[in-house]
Amino acid sequence: MSEAFIRCEKLTKVYRKGDQEIVPIRDLDLEIARGAFVSLMGPSGSGKTTLLNLLAGIDSPTRGALHIGSNDLARLSRGALAAWRSREVGIVFQSYNLVPVLTAFENVELPLLLQPLSRAERARRAMEALDTVGLGDRASHFPSQLSGGQEQRVAIARAIVARPPLLLADEPTGDLDRESADLVLALLASLHRDRGTTIVMVTHDPEAAARADTLLHLDKGRLAARESRGAEAAR
């Protein structure tokens, strides 16, 4: 059995909306192995995106423990979390979230500004990432000059350029047509296969989910079902 890379113990997230208490994640126990490709599925409001935000360190748990690698995220300060994200996590958003005034190259280069790299090294790695997603020839294009599928591939290049061990994707194909979605999913699969990147992907799309080797079904903030394909990567 593989070593657990992500470990959630009694993980709970509570939001308050006026007098109302919303609990999108409730006492969740979960382990994900290093190098796994996991799809998170579930109905709207089941806590998929909240769990992804917690895993990304952009939201903090109310109770419980969340370990990723050797880090206990619940104990990290805001600044330490930011530094951890820059080293360990790549995030792909449903609506790409590219900076509109920056070119594809400059968007991809952004995470490298946090690394102690020379300008030349940054340029080399940014171009390498763009080549990986097949957009080396679109480096000087602005997001507005790219199609949705191309924008998402740029976003993936940005997410992987710092070579993080964990890639989190929130509905990466949600805004794309089938052809573009297939391209993006193939890209994620190859990153998982070739680089051993641990991928956690939130999706509503069964076809997209089928690319993963583990499917986790969330319902009302709890793990409702677990489905493994091939090697057991998630427990």
């Binding site: 990304a56 952009i58 805001r78 600044g79 930011a82 530094a83 951890w84 994200r85 820059s86 080293r87 996590v89 995030i91 958003f93 979230n97 900076v99 509109p100 952004l110 995470p111 500004l113 946090l114 940005r158």
Partner: peptide, 12 residues
């Protein structure tokens, strides 16, 4: 954009 930069790891 600021949210994205924070998500990428830039400090406030």
């Amino acid at each position: 954009e600021v949210g994205t930069l924070q998500a990428l790891g830039f400090g406030r």
